[in-house]
Design a protein around this nucleic acid. Sequence first.
DNA 1: AATCCACAGGAAGTGCTGGGCG
DNA 2: CGCCCAGCACTTCCTGTGGATT
Length: 397
Amino acid sequence: MVDFAEILEEGNTIFRDKGALSPHYVPETLLYRDEEIRKIMVCLAPALKGQKAKNLFVYGKTGTGKTVSTKHVLDKLLQQGNPHVFGLYMNCRVYDSRYKILQKTITEFHPDIAKTGYSFAVLYEKFLDWLEENGKHVVLLLDEIDLVKDLDQMIYTLTRVNDDLREGSLTLLGVSNKVGFTKKLDARSRSSLCEEELVFQSYNANQLSGILKQRAEKSFHEGTIDDSAINVAAAIAAADNGDARYALMLLLRAGELAERSDVKKITDKQVEESRKAAEEDKAFEIISSLPEHQQLVLYGLAKLGGDTKYKRLVEEGGDKLYFSGEVYEAYVDCAKKLGREPRTSRWYREYLHELDMLGLISTVQSGKGIRGQTTLIRSSYEPARVKKSIEKTFSGE
DNA sequence: AATCCACAGGAAGTGCTGGGCG
DNA sequence: CGCCCAGCACTTCCTGTGGATT
């Protein structure tokens, strides 16, 4: 007997379940966040005793487990099966105003009064009535709370709910990765929202590798990934902000790379390659958002790479270093061909600086062996691909 | 030693835009 | 509503630099 599982397995030698590498995946045990989870639980626990839970504001950089941990605690709270306790997760990217938040909340718990068209005040009253009946305790988990447009008002009205109630309560659990954003809040809103605060520190390399191992067990078939590959991914991500999401993405891409090139095992090599690919993606994104003339400078440089009529260049370890003047000429050429007025060389030098700062090119001052004082320029990324990506942005308009 | 080269990069000027203010 | 001014994006002009060439 054949079943779908087998069909799906065919040609799928690496992955068992890609989903476990997704940033949205919630593992059953959360590693290294016991303290934080405990603190969140302490804040929410009063709801189970029929009291108002504490408002809590959670912040930390991306990929530190804020969302996953808060969601986890909220789920656990609801699992207690207390009929008076309610909870709801919302991403404020979607629900970005106090009206949308309130409406979503009511739709969730009390669909029959949730018709659109009610004014905020009416909704508010209905919500109060519903809360008060049997003394319900509601926890709203507001992810990316900094994206709410009328945040001050939202916090003000939703915390005031508790003053208008004889029974029941509403608690806000805000999550954000913008560490300083509460400074912009009204002092009153801030103290309401930040009744309790919790900071999620970045993961270190060891913790990241622990998390990766946990996920790798789920997502890869046995023996398809090297321990050292995991450690490399963890080290790369740790050096770059300690973002667990980034680390997971590296593993995912490494797996896909291995699959595509028909390798049976993911090693350091694939991880390293996927880091490179991720870096390039980022670079090309930067390139496409660059001002026109900076793109043209890059384009000129890239074109020299495929051109054989250049007069002067230096080779070093397989890389070609071009004279500044030469690149300028190429830039002027390209600009003219595309019907753009080329800038003067003075301004071109400023462009070079910026491109250097962005890491898209690298420059060295000429020294011995070269007459005169000039800058030698090297493209940081493969000229052919730079060329392609710029052509794309130019044909796009 | 004097001169040339191939630029680097500072200073000052220009033309446009957009915001604030009476 | 007109006016002024700041700021930006650039140009023009100019002096400086370090090695090669003569």
